[in-house]
Design a protein around this nucleic acid. Structure first.
Length: 141
DNA sequence: GCCAACGTTGGC
DNA sequence: GCCAACGTTGGC
């Protein structure tokens, strides 16, 4: 299993919106960036991801699961763009802020820190476990 | 609201 | 194929 991070502006698509979709989940559509798309093409069903709120909040707020592998993005006819489907698994007990992440030397190589503009990105297993714990969740969430 | 960083586009 | 111009993202 691999780990990922999905970034969204809460005003466009929030964790609450994602939770409302329940187990049926929702397409992670609208991505128009090759690096982010390539990350989604590498995902397997069952992979886990962090749900991150950008802009005002700047925090990891929950855990999602990939429930459908890359397929054409239904919001465009342009066949360059694919997306996966994800469902919410559990909210963090406490959100883990970007400031906290930047304050941890062991997390300084995270893509979130290194390339803040990339909206879909890989997370290493070590990073995953550490941030889960910081969010009040089991390390093997 | 500003601006740095970065990705994309299009002219040459 | 290079690179200048432009647009967008997201942290501050």
């Amino acid at each position: 299993m691999r780990y990922w991070l999905f970034k969204s502006e809460p005003s466009t698509w929030s964790w609450d919106d994602q939770m409302e979709k329940g187990d049926a989940g929702e397409e992670w559509d609208g991505v128009r960036n090759y690096q982010a798309r390539n990350a989604m093409r590498e995902m397997s069903k069952g992979d886990r991801g962090f749900f991150y709120h950008s802009q005002k909040e700047k925090a990891v707020v929950g855990i999602v699961e990939v429930i459908a592998e890359a397929h054409p993005d239904s919001t465009t006819d342009d066949d360059r763009w694919d997306c996966v489907d994800i469902r919410a698994i559990a909210p963090f007990k406490v959100p883990v802020t970007l400031d906290q992440i930047k304050g941890e030397p062991t997390l300084s190589d995270m893509v979130l820190v290194r390339n803040s503009r990339l909206s879909v990105q890989p997370v290493s297993e070590d990073e995953w476990r550490q941030i889960c714990v910081m969010g009040g969740m089991p390390a093997d969430s």
